[in-house]
Design a protein around this nucleic acid. Structure first.
Length: 378
DNA sequence: TCCTCTAACACTTTTGAATCGC
DNA sequence: AGCGATTCAAAAGTGTTAGAGG
């Protein structure tokens, strides 16, 4: 792990020099598909727009898997984990700590729409979380992942061996994350370099890259253009080359901000270490966040049964089986956490006695994602 | 005054129903 | 009738920016 200078952590998470964009955990190996693009953003401090109605990520999460059992079913999920307990602000061309983080919004988990599918399906091609949306609306009813603006997060991927999202074997969960996917949630872009990079790479932003619409055209609307020809389904290359961008230099700050900054960096380092575990090999620069489950056998009668309780709007460890006290938890530490059922769609099951006494039928992934699956301390 | 958030905007891309040809 | 390819309109998604609100 390289040293972390002020200017580096002020803008983005540290990134090792040589990067292999995959991590093997047990037999399962996960690779971040568009890692180069992520790195391009990471170097200048990735920002993700969040809106009331939900905004897609760009770059979006795209991963590939290997080492799965070809005929076993898996559910793939992703959630967002706070990097630290601070709120940030963009000031003088750089990010500064702006105080303590807001209380965590409701925890949401996004399940890949192909879930559940057999290992052979997941390994056949990379999977994209393109339709994952981020929102700052804590009352969101669409299942989007709720984040706080001006806070930092990273996506965390879960590979769960299960026949369906509702018959999850809670012992067979593996979790992965990638350092370069850390981002700051914002309601409007702060760093103009990020804006430029997004416009350069995001096809939806072409209207702003070409033709010079902007504020002028805003007042000179001239009607819709003819519909575009149907594009190829897989045409986009989101991993295209990006210009080498430099970190913004650190400038002088008020003394208090300096202290906050130092505290933030310390916290950031700490959470970074815990979130992505310890580097085992200097060449293995991507870290995973393995769930420490090997000492805890959740098979059969020890499977946790999702209780028929109302939806918990905030992250909680209420249903977790903790091998340690919650006070020992690092902010980024994973806690296994079964999904409580949605209030209106719960059904009782009569078979599958090996896993759950109750089965919860959800109409779609949006329903599912509204309920916390993996919580983390807050 | 400063900071954050929202909505409207022009434009591109994606989606899905309708149509056509075999 | 069934299937796949094509067309086209509508919906979805993009960053910008003025203005509102705390």
């Amino acid at each position: 792990m390289p040293n972390i200078s002020d200017s580096q952590t002020n803008v983005s998470m540290p990134l090792p020099q040589s990067v292999s964009h995959s991590y093997q955990q047990g037999c399962i190996r996960m690779t971040l598909e568009n890692a180069e693009l992520w790195e391009s953003f990471h170097r200048i401090g990735t920002e993700m727009i969040i809106t009331k109605h939900g905004r897609r990520m760009f770059p979006h999460c795209s991963i590939s898997l290997s080492g799965l059992q070809p005929f076993a079913s898996y559910v793939i999920m992703v959630d967002m984990v706070p990097v630290d307990s601070f709120k940030y602000k963009w000031k003088r061309e750089q990010w500064e700590v702006a105080g303590k983080a807001e209380p965590q919004p409701p925890c949401r988990t996004y399940m890949h729409p192909d879930s559940p599918a057999v290992g052979g399906h997941w390994m056949k091609q990379s999977m994209s979380f393109l339709k994952l949306k981020l929102t700052n609306n804590t009352l969101d009813q669409h299942g989007h992942i709720i984040l706080h603006s001006m806070h930092r997060y990273y996506p965390r991927f879960h590979v769960i061996q299960a026949d369906s999202p509702y018959t999850v074997r809670w012992g067979s969960v593996q979790t992965f994350s990638f350092p370069e996917t850390v981002f700051t949630a914002v309601t409007a872009y702060q760093n103009p370099k990020i804006t430029k990079l997004k416009i350069d790479h995001n096809p939806f932003a072409k209207g702003f890259r070409e033709g010079g619409t902007h504020s002028h055209s805003k007042r000179c609307r001239s009607g819709k253009s003819p519909p575009a020809k149907r594009p190829t389904e897989d045409g986009r290359d989101l991993c295209s080359h990006s210009p080498g961008l430099q970190r913004m230099p650190s400038t002088s700050r008020p003394a208090q901000a300096e202290r906050d900054q130092a505290f933030s960096q310390q916290s950031l380092r700490r959470s970074h270490l815990s979130a992505w575990a310890l580097e085992q090999d200097s060449s293995e620069s991507i870290h995973a966040e393995p769930l420490e489950l090997r000492d805890y056998d959740y098979s059969y009668e020890e499977q946790m049964v999702p209780a028929s309780v109302a939806y918990q709007p905030y992250r909680s460890v209420e249903y977790a089986r903790l091998p340690f006290s919650s006070s020992e938890l690092d902010p980024a530490q994973t806690i296994l956490h079964p999904p409580p059922p949605p209030p209106s769609t719960t059904k009782l099951g009569t078979h599958q006695q090996g896993y759950h006494q109750h089965h919860h039928q959800h109409s779609n992934t949006s329903d599912w994602s509204q309920y916390p699956l993996f919580s983390y301390s807050c």
